[in-house]
């Protein structure tokens, strides 16, 4: 009974009126990130002449791409354009056949996934990938933990700062009441948000977000757009998305991938009116515009 009241009050505090404040909170919570901390490096991500071939099939073909710190970039493109391979390259899951990838001026060649993650690149997967047998709180703890070696995991105690960050994040993603049940029992939308929370807990400089609104309701989609917009204030973000409505909601700069190369780049309006893009999408963009 008491907890129900606590919950109600809590929901009341987090009602619609308060939502902008809620998202401001998530930005304030991601620790240790001053705005634009790499101002001495002009680009946060620089990719040059990148080619990836799987047995002769070129998933990415001579791709060149760069991004300023603090930018929110949306990448669109038809199926098979190489969007997910693009993220696989940046996160070290796939090694490039040719070309270079530089993050904050450092080459990522031959670095493994965990080393790249520790450099400050976080990734959210298309289908939510949270640890189903752990609770949301434990999920966040694993991402938030700063010492990721064996010894630290065995002996280091959780700091009170970390505990506060996690409590705050749980509130922001609306999982306070479910913080200590198995994550496998959460709904699809809750898992998506938990994974975004895990990403923020990791406090990366560059967030790679793969189709964050797949399978979400309109309301959840709207909330996610707001969340990403507020995260963009202190992080560089790459979003891959199919949902044009959502892209229009968040997009400032859009890059269109086609057959493994950059087809064109620009703001949403100029990209949508580009005849090449319309051709690639086979009239799909006209439907969207209608």
């Amino acid at each position: 009974m008491f907890s129900t009241i606590v919950w109600r009050t809590h929901r009341l505090l987090l009602s619609n009126v308060e939502r902008p404040r809620r998202f401001a909170a998530i930005v304030a919570l991601s620790p240790d990130i001053p705005l634009n901390p790499y101002s001495f490096v002009s680009k946060i991500l620089e990719i040059e002449n990148l080619t990836v071939s799987f047995d002769g099939f070129k998933a990415l073909n001579n791709l060149t791409f760069s991004m300023e710190p603090g930018e929110l970039r949306t990448i669109i493109g038809p199926n098979g354009a190489g969007k997910t391979t693009f993220l696989d390259i940046i996160t070290g899951k796939v090694q490039p056949t040719e070309g270079t990838v530089k993050f904050k001026g450092k080459s990522l060649a031959k670095k493994s996934e965990h080393a790249i993650a520790q450099l400050g690149i976080g990734r959210k997967f298309q289908t939510p990938r949270v640890y189903l047998n752990l609770t949301p709180r434990e999920n966040l703890e694993l991402s938030c933990n700063r010492t990721k070696n064996v010894i630290g995991s065995l002996f280091r105690k959780q700091s009170s700062g970390e505990r506060r960050t996690i409590a705050g994040l749980l509130e922001t993603i609306g999982l306070v009441a479910k913080a200590d049940i198995q994550a496998g029992l959460l709904s699809h939308g809750e898992k998506q948000w938990l994974e975004i929370g895990m990403l923020v807990a990791q406090s990366p400089d560059l967030l790679l977000v793969d189709e964050p609104v797949a399978g979400l309701t309109d309301e959840e989609t709207f909330q996610t757009a707001e969340l990403l917009n507020s995260l963009a204030q202190s992080h560089s973000i790459i979003v891959i998305e199919h949902d044009m409505e959502f892209v229009r909601e968040i997009a400032r700069q859009v890059t269109v991938l086609h057959q493994g190369s950059v087809l064109c780049e620009g703001d949403m309006d100029s990209v949508q009116s580009d005849p090449r893009v319309i051709e690639v999408y086979l009239g799909q963009s006209e439907d969207e515009a209608a």
């Binding site: 996934e113 965990h114 993650a117 189903l132 047998n133 752990l134 991402s143 990721k148 070696n149």
Partner: peptide
């Protein structure tokens, strides 16, 4: 056990 590659992307080896 549940998702080893996710653990890598969280920064653990």
């Amino acid at each position: 056990r549940d998702d080893e590659s996710r653990v890598r992307f969280s920064g653990y080896d």
